[in-house]
């Protein structure tokens, strides 16, 4: 299955820039680095908790570049009024994680 990723190239570049600005260690951002960024969105904490659940695909408590892009994508969509899904739709799973 070769479904195009929901995160478009230009959006991914923007998310990558934010990712790099947070000083990832070994390609990963820990929860305490990502948390303030997501809280900045002013979304309710329970919504952000679900965003984290959906984007930390391997559940290691850290986000690598593609997982972070999923988190940011969900936050931006939520800010536009779209509900955060209860589970990650296949087109939103990064190609590197399928």
């Amino acid at each position: 299955m070769d479904i195009p990723w929901f995160v478009k190239a230009e959006e991914k570049m923007k998310f990558d820039t934010i990712f790099d600005s947070l000083f990832p260690v070994g390609g990963y951002l820990t929860g305490d680095k990502v948390k303030p960024v997501l809280l900045n969105s002013k979304l309710p904490v329970d919504v952000l908790g679900r965003v984290w659940e959906l984007s930390d695909i391997d559940r290691d408590g850290m986000l690598e570049r593609d997982e972070f892009a999923v988190a940011m994508y969900l936050v931006y969509r939520a800010l536009e009024g779209e509900p955060v899904p209860m589970s990650l739709p296949p087109p939103l799973v990064p190609p590197s994680k399928r």
């Binding site: 904490v45 329970d46 908790g49 930390d56 589970s87």
Partner: peptide, 13 residues
């Protein structure tokens, strides 16, 4: 979706 017993890996829980 949520691991049993809550998720210690989720900084928002």
């Amino acid at each position: 979706q949520y691991p049993a017993g809550g998720s210690s890996t989720n900084p928002f829980l």
